[in-house]
Every structure is written in structure tokens, then in C-alpha cells.
């Protein structure tokens, strides 16, 4: 029901993705702010089919050498590659960083029991600056296998990047910096090395009062 409508291949589907900061005020009170968020817990036919973007338009925004986006696309199967344009919500102003936690939660589901490897590459001017690789095992729940990377700590590079971005006085300045900032996520089956999902993220700052927004595209080669 969801293929072509959201981020997912025949093998695996993204259920949730969020990057957030959370501060504990007292033992019972947490303030949570979402920088970006995708919730795909119940997609349906009713949602519009995804628009396409020619992957060649963004090759240079991501690593181009061995193992880069071009090579992944040429080796991978169609309908596995997606582009997300995020309008990140940076409208949070904190007085102090005490007790602050910066994290990323992502969740995938599949009909297959696998061990997955999730690589997240932060890129500046298309060059990888930091990579996190996480391995996740399946948990059988409600008739499908769930993979949940829960509250993975955000790397120092990203935390510093957010801090510096927030110090810029105008949104157009933030967008100018974000023009050269991207993230590439690749999910593979650890045991077979099959590429299951590849998501390229690009960013602007949200001007909405309703929090982070996004558009999802499928990446194709026309």
C-alpha cells in the first residue's frame, strides 16, 4: 500500500526518523524539541505518489568517490533511493546546556528478519566529514520485524554545527550554510551486504510556526 508513497523499498520501510534535543528540567519534566521529523507509521494509498528527482542533480552534494552515491545507485536496485528536503526547526532558544541531550531516533520495519547496518554520513561541500555506523537486530512485533535505533547520541560535529547555525542572525544566512550541508543514510543487510535503502537529506531552515517540515522524493535516473 505504501510503495511509491513514502520512504521504503520492497525489503524495508522507514517508520520514523527524528533528530531532537531534550533537556531535563527536574526528575519528572523533559522539554523536547524536534529539529527534523518524519513519521510514516500509517501511510496509505490516499497519500500522493512521490515526485521524482534525477539523481544526477545531486551527485556532487554527496561523496563521489568509491562507495559514493553514483556507485551505490548503479549497483543498487531501483526504488531504493530517496531524497528528503527538510525545513529544520531551529526556533529554540536555550539559556543553558545543562542536562541537554542531542539525539536521533530512527525506526524501520520489514517482513524479513535481518540484521541491518545503518550508515549516516555527514557531508560538507559533498565531502564526508563524519560517519556513524550502527548495527540493529530485528524485534518481532505485530506481525513484522522492527528495527529501532533509539536515542542515538548526536555526534559532536553536528551539535557544534547546530550551535553555530543558530548564532547566525538571519535565516537566509543559515540557508546559505545549509546549502553545502547534507547527510546520506544507507541501510544494508549486514549478512548479505544488500543495499536496502538509501536516503539523501538536504536542508533549509523552517519559516513555519508549526515546526519542522519536509518533502520526500524518489531518486531516479531519467
Amino acid at each position: 500500500a505504501w510503495q511509491g508513497h513514502c520512504i521504503g523499498s520492497t525489503k524495508i520501510r522507514l517508520v520514523e526518523f527524528s533528530a531532537f534535543m531534550e533537556q531535563q528540567r527536574d526528575p519528572d519534566t523533559y522539554n523536547k524539541h524536534l529539529f527534523v521529523h518524519i513519521g510514516q507509521s500509517s501511510p496509505s494509498y490516499n497519500e500522493a505518489l512521490l515526485e521524482s528527482v534525477d539523481i544526477r542533480q545531486i551527485y556532487d552534494k554527496f561523496p563521489e568517490k568509491k562507495g559514493g552515491l553514483k556507485e551505490l545507485f548503479e549497483k543498487g536496485t531501483p526504488n531504493t533511493f530517496f531524497l528528503v528536503k527538510f525545513w529544520a526547526d531551529l526556533s529554540i532558544h536555550t539559556q543553558d546546556e545543562a542536562g541537554m541531550f542531542y539525539g536521533v531516533t530512527s525506526q524501520y520495519e520489514s517482513a524479513e528478519n535481518m540484521t541491518i547496518t545503518c550508515s549516516s554520513k555527514v557531508c560538507s561541500f559533498g565531502k564526508q566529514v563524519v560517519e556513524k555506523v550502527e548495527t540493529e537486530y530485528a524485534r518481532f512485533e505485530n506481525g513484522r520485524f522492527l528495527y529501532r535505533i533509539h536515542r542515538s547520541p548526536m555526534c559532536e560535529y553536528l551539535i557544534n554545527f547546530i550551535h553555530k547555525l543558530k548564532q547566525l542572525p538571519e535565516k537566509y544566512m543559515m540557508n546559505s550554510v545549509l546549502e553545502n550541508f547534507t547527510i546520506l543514510q544507507v541501510v544494508t543487510n549486514r549478512d548479505t551486504q544488500e543495499l536496502l535503502l538509501c536516503v539523501a537529506y538536504v536542508f533549509e531552515v523552517s519559516t513555519s510556526e508549526h515546526g519542522a517540515q519536509h518533502h520526500i522524493y524518489k531518486l531516479v535516473k531519467d
Partner: peptide, 24 residues
């Protein structure tokens, strides 16, 4: 853009790429 990259605005991208969604 530095390093010779073509600005995103000059690339062939859907119009929606530049339109922040309105919630609801």
C-alpha cells in the same frame, strides 16, 4: 556556492523543492 558547485536554485528540481509545506 564554493568549490565550483552549482547552486541548488540552478538545478533541475521540482517546484515543490522550494515550497515549505503548510501543515494541515
Amino acid at each position: 556556492a564554493r568549490h565550483g558547485q552549482v547552486p541548488m536554485r540552478k538545478r533541475q528540481l521540482p517546484a515543490s523543492f522550494w515550497e515549505e509545506p503548510r501543515p494541515g
